[in-house]
Design a protein around this nucleic acid. Structure first.
Lengths: 122, 122
DNA sequence: AATGACTGTTTACATTTGTAGACAATGAAA
DNA sequence: TTTCATTGTCTACAAATGTAAACAGTCATT
């Protein structure tokens, strides 16, 4: 079971998934583009993630280098499954139908998805 | 902006979305099929939902009848948007692609979705 | 009228989450 | 070697969440 990652922690993970390993300061520099957090906050989040073994640490002299231990793809799979299960009874079709009705699907989206499905059937 | 509904609260809402209005005890009786909660817990959750104006109350003698004030569909739309935004950059196609890769899409699902998309284009 | 069953209200309490400040170690610079 | 900057660790603290117990009002029953 992959440990639960909170919203704030997730923002940190996104940065690490883009490039790793990174020092806490580097992560903070990146995160700040999206969130208005202090360095301390980012350090706390990194510690929590490390405690949960979601990121790994590697000593580099006085500081640590952090890297994700969980793949983004695996994380997405888990979260998506959970989401679809909880809200759409585990079925993807109702989810797509819902997004479509809520006008979240443009004509382009539809074409893209059709193309994707066509590929899948091969 | 629809108030945030927590996981536990959501379970209560699902029951109310199936049938309403209901008394706290009735809700608890239903919820217990999925969650192992005491009547007290369900009452607390109903109170919190009422405080957030997500469910409405209507006096019926000594007790209350609870009904959802938020439509399930609207709730799903909000949560789905948030989900797709946060995890897939707001694009539905990557979500579908991901679910497909994670083998969450059966051949039947694919057929269903294709049919759905065909309908949408009309 | 007293008692018990039901129901809402108040209070509780541990955990998780968001958001850091304070402190300590340590390497770099003067 | 004194000092400053960097970096991790410890502590903090309020809000949200999960999970209820305790209490109080009240209708039904004895």
């Amino acid at each position: 079971m992959t440990e639960r990652i909170s919203d704030a922690e997730h923002a940190v993970m996104e940065v690490l998934w883009q490039r790793a390993p990174m020092t806490a300061t580097e992560v903070a520099d990146q995160v700040v583009h999206h969130k208005d957090w202090s360095l301390q906050t980012v350090k706390t989040l990194l510690s929590r993630l490390a405690a949960k073994a979601v990121v790994g640490t590697e000593r580099d002299g006085r500081r640590f280098l952090y890297s994700p231990l969980v793949e983004r793809d695996d994380y997405l799979t888990g979260v998506s499954r959970n989401f679809v299960d909880r809200l759409f009874g585990g079925k993807v079709t109702p989810l797509v139908a819902h997004l479509a009705e809520a006008d979240k699907l443009s004509a382009d989206d539809i074409r893209e998805i059709e193309e994707l499905l066509r590929e899948l059937k091969k």
